[in-house]
Amino acid sequence: MADNPHDPAMREINAQYTHPSGILVSGHYRKGHGYTCYRPEGTRDWLIMYTISGKGLINNGAGDYLECTERTITIVSPGTLQDFFTAEGYVWEKLWAHFLPRFTWADWLPAGHTGGPVFQLHIDNDSTSRAIESAFQRVLAYRLDSDALLRDELTMNALEEIILNVASQNRQQTKTDPRISEVLDILAARYMDEHMIEDLAASVSLSPSRLSHLFKEQVGDSIIETLVKYRLNQAEKMLRYTLRPITEIALDVGFHSPDYFTRRFTGSFGVSPSQYRKQQLDKVY
C-alpha cells in the first residue's frame, strides 16, 4: 500500500468513496523501524489495523501518540490524520484493511475514546483474539481468490465478524449501564413493535426523562432513532437476501408508512430500497 496521500493507490481509494460498501485495500505487514505512513488529511474510507506482534506508534489526532502492541485493534475514521510508524527497536507486524462500511455497522463502529478521533482497544480475551486474527486472514484469502463465488460478500462478512467482535469487547470493557443494555435488548428483539418511552422507563425503574438522557449519553442516539436504525438494519437484510415486496418488508419491520420507510432508507443508504436491491442482485449476477 502507498505510504503517502499522493500515491496512485490512495487516489484510487478516494475515487471509490462514492461506491457501495466494500474493502478497498488490505494486507499483512512486517515492517521494521523506519516504516512510516503520514497522510495529513487522512482518507475518505475507514482504516482498521490489528497488531500481531512488535510495536507501532500512531498519532491519536490530538497530538499524542498511542502504542499499537500485540492484540491491539486500532480504527481510524474518515478524514482523520493518519500518522503512524514502527517504534524504534521493534518490528511491527499487523493486519490491516481500508474499507467502506455497510450501513448496518453504524452502531458497531466505535467512536474514539483516546483523547482524539482514533479508536483503540486491547483484546484481552484469548478466543476473541484468535477469532479476529482468523477473520482477518480470511479477508486476505478471499480477496486473493479470483475464482470464489460472491468473493466481495465473503470478504465483507469476514470483516463484519471482526467489527462485531471489537464492538462486543468494547461494550464489555466500557461497562454500559445495565439498564441501558436492557433497553437496547428490548429494542433489538422487538424492533417491529411500537414502544412508549414511559413503558421502557418503567421496565428499568427510571423516569422517562432520566432514561432519555442516560440513553442518549451512552448510546449516542435517542431511543427513537435507535429503534429506526434497528428497523432499517433488518429491512436491509431482507432486501439483500429475499425477494419479498418492499411494502411488505416496510410493514414487517415496523414502518406503518411505506413512503416514510423509503425516505428513511434513502437518507441512510443513499439509494432507494428498489435501487439497493438492484445493486445487490447485480453483484450476484
Rank of each mutant, 00 (worst) to 15 (best):
M1L: 02
D3R: 10
N4K: 10
N4H: 09
P5G: 04
P5M: 14
H6A: 09
I13D: 03
A15P: 01
G22F: 01
G22M: 04
L24F: 00
H28V: 05
Y29G: 06
R30D: 03
Y35C: 13
C37L: 02
C37D: 08
C37H: 13
R39S: 12
P40M: 07
P40R: 15
G42C: 14
T43L: 09
R44I: 07
W46H: 15
W46R: 07
M49C: 10
G54W: 06
N59V: 01
N60D: 14
N60Q: 14
G61S: 02
D64T: 00
T69A: 14
T72S: 12
I73W: 08
L81D: 11
F85T: 02
A87S: 14
G89H: 14
A97H: 06
A97W: 01
H98P: 01
F99P: 00
P101E: 13
R102D: 12
R102C: 02
W105S: 10
D107Y: 07
D107A: 13
P110W: 04
T114H: 13
G116F: 00
P117F: 03
P117E: 04
F119P: 01
F119S: 04
H122G: 11
D126S: 09
S127E: 11
S129F: 00
S129W: 06
I132H: 06
S134Y: 10
S134L: 13
R138F: 07
R138K: 03
L140S: 07
L140C: 03
A148I: 10
A148H: 07
L150F: 09
L150I: 06
R151Y: 05
L154G: 00
T155P: 09
L159Q: 04
L159A: 10
E161Y: 04
N165R: 06
S168N: 01
T174C: 01
D177F: 06
R179M: 13
V183Q: 06
L187A: 06
A189M: 05
M192L: 11
M192P: 02
D193C: 14
E194W: 00
E194N: 05
H195I: 09
D199G: 02
L200D: 04
A201L: 01
A201K: 08
A201N: 08
A202R: 03
S203D: 14
V204C: 01
L206N: 07
P208M: 00
S209P: 03
L211P: 10
S212F: 03
E217D: 12
S222G: 03
I224A: 08
V228R: 10
N233M: 11
A235I: 09
K237V: 12
L239G: 13
L239S: 14
R240F: 03
R240Q: 07
Y241G: 05
T242R: 09
T242C: 08
E248M: 12
I249H: 01
L251P: 02
L251D: 11
D252S: 15
G254Y: 08
F255Y: 15
H256Y: 08
P258C: 00
S268L: 02
P273A: 10
P273Q: 07
Q275L: 08
Q275K: 11
Y276W: 15
D282K: 15
V284H: 05
